[in-house]
C-alpha cells in the first residue's frame, strides 16, 4: 500500500506541472516552473537519492529559473508569435486533441509500467567490489568519475560546447575582434538594471559563504553526497548574484572565463590519456593515484561547470547590433 505522503506528493507534482504548462502568461509559467523544481526536489528526497535532490535544487530550480525569469521579464507578452492565444477558429480543438492523446498515452504507459516484471540492475555487485580501486568512497562519485567517466567527460563537453554556442551568438562571435582572442563578450561591461541597495549589501555578505559552501560540496563529494555538478551550480549562483548587484566582475571575466571554461575538459582528456600511455585502456587510473586524478579532474570540472553556467546567464541579454 502506498502512504498518504506519496499520494499527496505525486498529486502535487501533477498539479504544479499543470500550473507550469497551462496558463497563458509567461510570468506565471515561469513561476510554475520554479515551484515544479522545488516539488520535484522533494520527490527526489522521498525516493532517498540525496545527490539528485542537491543537483535538482542547485541546477534545476536555481539556475534554470534564473534564466527563465530573466527571459519572461525581458519580453512578457510574446511579440509577433501570437503565442498563447487560442487559434481563433476552434479555440477548444487544441485542448481537446491534447487531452485525448495525452490521456491515451498516459494510460498505455501506466499499464505497461504496472504489469512489467522488473529486474534489479546486474551491476550492483560489480559496483561494490570494484569500488576500492576508484579511489573514492561515495558510490555516485565513483560511478560518475571512474566507472562511467566517459559519460561524464562527454557531458561536461556538452556544457562547454553549449557555452561556446551562446558565445558564438554574441557580438563578434565571442571574440573582441577577429585578431585577438581576448573575450569581447559585450555583457561583461554592459549595465545591469538598477537594484535597491539591500541586494548588493546582502550579495557581498553572502558571496564568501556561497564560495565556502561550493568548495565544501566539492570536497565532500568523495565521501558523502555532493560533487562537481552541485558545487559548480552553487558557485555559478554566487557569480550571478554578484553580477546582478553590480559588482564589477568585467575585467576578471573578460580574461579568465574562457580558459576556466575549457580547463575542465582538457585536463579530463589528458588524465584519460594517461591510461594508454601506461598500456591500459583509456580513462583508467591506477588505484594508488586514482584518488589524486579523480580529485584533480573534479576540481577543474567544477570550475568549468561554474564558468559554463555563468556564461549562459551572461550572454542571455542581446548586445545591440546582434538583433
Amino acid at each position: 500500500m502506498i502512504s498518504s505522503l506519496d499520494i499527496t506528493l505525486g498529486l502535487a507534482v501533477l498539479a504544479v506541472t499543470g500550473l507550469c504548462l497551462i496558463p497563458r502568461s509567461r510570468l506565471v509559467i515561469t513561476m510554475g516552473f520554479l515551484a515544479l523544481g522545488i516539488v520535484v526536489t522533494m520527490v527526489w528526497l522521498r525516493l532517498d537519492s540525496l545527490d539528485v535532490a542537491l543537483a535538482e535544487a542547485a541546477i534545476g530550480t536555481g539556475l534554470l529559473s534564473a534564466l527563465m525569469v530573466w527571459l519572461a521579464v525581458r519580453s512578457p507578452e510574446p511579440p509577433g508569435a501570437g503565442g498563447m492565444q487560442p487559434s481563433p477558429r476552434l479555440p477548444w480543438l487544441r485542448p481537446l486533441i491534447g487531452l485525448a492523446c495525452g490521456g491515451t498515452l498516459a494510460v498505455v504507459a501506466a499499464a505497461v509500467w504496472f504489469r512489467v516484471d522488473q529486474q534489479l540492475p546486474a551491476w550492483q555487485a560489480g559496483v561494490e567490489d570494484q569500488m576500492p580501486d576508484t579511489g573514492v568512497e561515495h558510490p555516485i562519485t565513483g560511478v560518475l568519475l571512474a566507472f562511467r567517466a566517459y559519460d561524464t567527460l562527454l557531458e561536461s563537453a556538452i556544457l562547454m560546447l553549449t557555452a561556446a554556442a551562446v558565445l558564438a551568438l554574441c557580438r563578434g562571435g565571442g571574440l573582441s575582434d577577429p585578431g585577438t582572442h581576448r573575450l569581447g563578450v559585450h555583457q561583461t561591461s554592459a549595465p545591469m538594471p538598477p537594484v535597491p541597495s539591500a541586494l548588493p549589501w546582502a550579495a557581498r555578505l553572502l558571496a564568501p559563504a556561497l564560495m565556502l559552501l561550493g568548495l565544501w560540496l566539492l570536497f565532500a563529494g568523495s565521501a558523502e553526497s555532493g560533487g562537481a555538478f552541485q558545487s559548480g551550480a552553487v558557485l555559478a549562483a554566487a557569480f550571478i548574484l554578484l553580477r546582478t548587484s553590480h559588482v564589477s566582475l568585467g575585467a576578471a571575466t573578460a580574461h579568465w572565463l574562457r580558459p576556466v571554461l575549457v580547463g575542465g575538459v582538457v585536463v579530463f582528456i589528458l588524465a584519460g590519456l594517461a591510461g594508454p600511455v601506461l598500456g591500459l585502456p583509456w580513462l583508467s587510473w591506477q588505484p594508488e593515484w586514482a584518488f589524486a586524478a579523480v580529485l584533480g579532474v573534479e576540481v577543474l570540472l567544477t570550475a568549468g561547470i561554474a564558468a559554463g553556467l555563468y556564461t549562459l546567464f551572461l550572454t542571455l541579454e542581446n548586445p545591440e547590433g546582434v538583433r
Binding site: 534554470l64 562511467r148 561547470i305
Partner: peptide, 24 residues
C-alpha cells in the same frame, strides 16, 4: 542504485545545457 542516480545527474546537466541554449 548509484549508477542510475549518476545517469540522472548527467541528464540534469544536459537539461540545463539545452534549456540555456534555447533561452539565448
Amino acid at each position: 542504485d548509484a549508477v542510475l542516480q549518476a545517469l540522472v545527474i548527467t541528464g540534469l546537466v544536459i537539461a540545463v545545457a539545452f534549456t540555456g541554449l534555447g533561452a539565448v
